[in-house]
């Protein structure tokens, strides 16, 4: 039984509208990180915009549009990470440490990881990419969607999108 890693089966395989990376120069020096949204399908949904306190997720002209981002306004606050019903928002802070980045990802599973613990970090098909250290666990909206802060090697920020439920 082999599932192919195709876009049609729910795996992001390349950058496309609604799933783009921030501009590298701004990203590398922006403390707190910048948002990465992986929402490449036009669906009627806009909570990322309505939850964004700075207007970095640009208001939708048509609610079916994919999100567009004004990175100049993004503070990396991760409110969209907590709010997005598709769990499609992530924040990556490249200034976290030497060769170490901080990834803020949504988490709705049990058990919760322990703060300070080492966890396995998973890619877009659940494959183990690397290990990471859980730096913080927040619940910004008090609605049971946690935002887990995990420190990972900087060169893995394009690959890690989950942590193992263990």
């Amino acid at each position: 039984m082999k599932a192919s890693a195709t876009f049609e089966s729910g795996v992001l395989t390349d950058e496309r509208p609604g799933a783009v990376k921030p501009p590298r120069d701004l990203w590398e020096k922006h403390k707190g990180g910048l948002v990465l949204v992986e929402c490449p399908q036009r669906i009627p949904c806009n909570p990322c915009n309505t939850s964004c306190p700075t207007g970095a997720i640009v208001p939708f002209e048509d609610i079916n549009n994919v999100p567009t981002i004004n990175y100049e306004k993004c503070t990396g606050c991760a409110m969209c990470v907590a709010k997005c019903p598709g769990l499609a928002c992530f924040v990556v802070d490249l200034t976290w440490g030497e060769e170490i980045a901080l990834l803020k990802l949504p988490y709705e599973m049990l058990p919760l990881p322990q703060k300070g613990s080492t966890v396995k970090c998973l890619g877009r098909t659940g494959e183990i990419v690397c290990e990471g250290k859980v730096e913080n666990i927040l619940e910004p909206l008090k609605d049971r969607t946690k935002v887990v802060h995990v420190a990972i090697p900087s060169d893995k920020v394009g690959d890690v999108r989950a942590i193992e439920v263990a």
């Binding site: 089966s9 929402c39 399908q41 669906i43 598709g86 499609a88 877009r124 098909t125």
Partner: peptide, 12 residues
């Protein structure tokens, strides 16, 4: 929705 698929795919 693609995002619903992505969230189960990334958990394996």
């Amino acid at each position: 929705y693609w995002v619903h698929a992505a969230k189960v795919r990334r958990l394996g």
